[in-house]
Simulated assay, not measured.
Amino acid sequence: MALTNCKECNSEISDKAFDCPKCGAKLRKPERSFFGKIIKYTFIVFNLLMLLWFVTGVGSAAQTVDAAASEAEQAGAAIGTGIGAMLIITIWVFGDLILGIMTLLTRPKK
């Protein structure tokens, strides 16, 4: 362990310290582990993919509803769209809960 000087108060502190114990100045920021970075980026990619899936799914289903010939086909397509949208939202919520908790548990610590 080497000693260094604080940039704010010029007191001697450990080079491993995150904050100066005397003045409280931030010296360095804790970093996520490799696994923590993987979880964080998985959380971001998951949300982007779910958004893309939701927008394209509902958009293509809306085209199907408009192209349906009879009122019964339109009603069926609308019901199917609603069920599909709720399924996507349910998967999205549960996935976000799981990945969000994992992201919080793998955040950097001092």
Rank of each mutant, 00 (worst) to 15 (best):
M1H: 12
M1G: 15
A2T: 15
L3M: 10
T4Y: 02
N5E: 13
C6E: 02
K7G: 08
K7Q: 08
E8D: 11
E8Y: 04
C9G: 01
C9V: 00
S11K: 11
S11E: 13
E12D: 12
I13D: 00
I13T: 03
S14L: 14
S14T: 13
D15K: 05
D15I: 04
K16T: 14
A17Y: 06
A17G: 03
D19N: 10
K22C: 07
K22V: 14
K22Y: 15
K22E: 14
C23T: 09
G24M: 04
K26V: 09
K26P: 07
K26T: 10
R28E: 10
R28W: 03
R28V: 07
K29R: 12
K29V: 11
P30G: 02
E31C: 01
R32I: 03
R32D: 04
S33E: 08
S33K: 10
F34I: 13
F35W: 08
G36W: 02
G36V: 03
G36P: 02
G36D: 02
G36S: 04
G36F: 01
I39A: 02
K40N: 06
Y41W: 09
T42V: 07
F46A: 09
F46D: 03
F46G: 04
L51E: 03
L52P: 02
W53Y: 14
F54E: 11
F54A: 14
V55F: 11
T56A: 14
T56W: 11
V58Y: 03
Q63D: 09
T64Q: 12
A67W: 05
A69Y: 11
A69P: 09
A69E: 14
A69N: 13
A69Q: 14
S70F: 01
E71H: 05
E73W: 09
Q74T: 06
G76M: 04
G76V: 04
G76D: 12
A78P: 00
A78M: 01
A78S: 04
A78N: 01
I79K: 13
I79A: 14
T81G: 10
G82A: 05
G84T: 07
G84R: 06
G84W: 10
G84F: 15
A85C: 06
M86E: 04
M86N: 06
L87H: 08
L87N: 05
L87C: 08
I88M: 01
T90K: 01
W92I: 09
W92V: 08
V93C: 09
F94E: 06
F94K: 08
F94M: 13
F94N: 10
G95F: 08
M102W: 09
M102P: 00
T103F: 10
L104Q: 12
L104D: 10
L105G: 00
T106I: 04
R107V: 01
K110T: 05
K110L: 05
